[in-house]
Every structure is written in C-alpha cells, then in structure tokens.
Write a protein that binds this DNA or RNA. Structure first.
Length: 210
DNA sequence: CACCAGGCAAGTA
DNA sequence: TACTTGCATGGT
C-alpha cells in the first residue's frame, strides 16, 4: 500500500530535489530548524543571508553574537526563538562532540536521535529531518502534511501520534535513504498542491480510489 | 482582511 | 496529564 502510494506520487510529481545542500550537511541542519512551522521561501532568504556573509559554517556561526544571528535569519520568522535553538544545537555539538559534526552523524540513528532530542528547540520532526537529510540515515520524517494525508485517506487515526505514524513507514518500506527522502518530499508536494487543509475532496488526487 | 506555512516549549489548571 | 499560548515573517 505505502509503496503503491509512493509510486503514484512519483509518477504524478516526479523527483522533488529536496535539500540539494549547496553548502553541505551543515546548511541542511540549519535549514531544518529554520523551517519549523514556516514556508521554505522565507527560510531560503534567511539561509542566503547567512551564505552571503560566509556564516554557513560551524565555527563562524558559533562565534556570531545571538542578536546578530537573529538579524540574519529574520525573514524565517520566530527569529529570536530560532536563533536560540540554533545556538543550543551548536552548543550540544561542541560539548558532546568537540564541535565535529561528523562525529554526531557517525552515530547509530537511534543514538543520534537521542542527542538531537536533548536539545531544547529540537523535536521529533526536526531531529528526523536532520538525520535523514543531513546525516543520510534512513529515518522517515513525519510532518503535518503526512499526518493529514494519511488520516484523510483512512490509513491512520486523526489522533495517531508521531511515533505510530513513523513506525507504519518503517514497517512497510525498505530502509532506504533515497526512498524516504523522496517520499517525504512528495507528501509535502501533495499536501500543498492537492490535499490542502481547506480541500477535503480533491478531484484529481493521485491517490483516488485507495 | 483572514489564513497559512516542512514545530516546539513553556505556561496553566 | 491535557489543553492553551507565544513565537513572526512573507505570500495568497
């Protein structure tokens, strides 16, 4: 079932090229926090601000005063909150891994997840986004779109929590990074394009009849 | 004008 | 434990 859904989404929308990571995993990790409850166009502006000043780099970002960081990421919204969250993450990586991102990314996904969740400002979705899109480990990312699409099509209960939904994917799909990457991106695409909040019955839904 | 966007933590009872 | 509220910009 889940593979069939993927097949239909891919056929309809094609590859989504999520997080090509111009600047590498560090940029992806930053983006994962900036995109919390925010559209990507705004996040993209914030990231370009950082890039333009050569701040997409662990040491450079760490050395930046919090108020300055907030100013750079302003377009992403919640900028004071997110500046703190980014700093919390950098502090964890500094304290636990000597500031070496690769040490964090080399851990088993479950262990990496615990370290990330211990950071104030990183919840399940942000942690999993970092693990999948920055560290390239097969963890499925569940977001608001995933939840809405699956519940609307009767595959999960409306109140199903994050872990239950994630297990559904882990149990019924091969643990493949590229598959998880593309699948999550396709679900977001479907949610924007068709399975919207105010559009309970999309006529041209690629999942029609499932 | 209202509503939405690739959440999360802190406050309240 | 179970709700509610704050955080904020920019597009539709």
């Amino acid at each position: 079932m889940l593979l069939e859904i993927y097949r239909r989404l891919y056929e309809r929308f094609g590859p989504q090229h999520w997080w090509p990571a111009k600047e590498g995993p560090f940029e992806v990790m930053v983006g994962a926090i900036l995109t919390q409850n925010t559209n990507w166009a705004n996040v993209s502006r914030a990231i370009e601000n950082l890039r333009a000043s050569g701040l997409l780099d662990f040491a450079a970002l760490e050395a930046l005063p919090p108020a300055d960081l907030a100013a750079y990421i302003r377009p992403a919204g919640y900028f004071r909150v997110k500046a703190n969250r980014l700093r919390n993450l950098l502090a964890m990586i500094r304290e636990r891994f000597g500031g070496d991102l690769q040490q964090l990314f080399a851990l088993e996904p479950a262990v990496m997840r615990e370290h990330l969740l211990a950071v104030s400002g990183i919840g399940p979705e942000t942690a999993d986004s970092i693990i999948l899109y920055a560290a390239n480990k097969p963890i499925f990312v569940v977001d608001a779109y995933t939840h809405r699409i699956l519940s609307r099509h009767g595959l999960i209960d409306d109140e199903a929590d994050y872990h239950v939904v994630q297990e559904l994917f882990h149990d019924h799909l091969p643990a493949d990074v590229q598959l998880y990457n593309e699948y999550h991106a396709l679900l977001v695409r479907l949610g924007k394009e068709c399975c919207k909040k105010r559009n309970p019955r999309c006529q041209e839904c690629p999942l029609k009849g499932m």
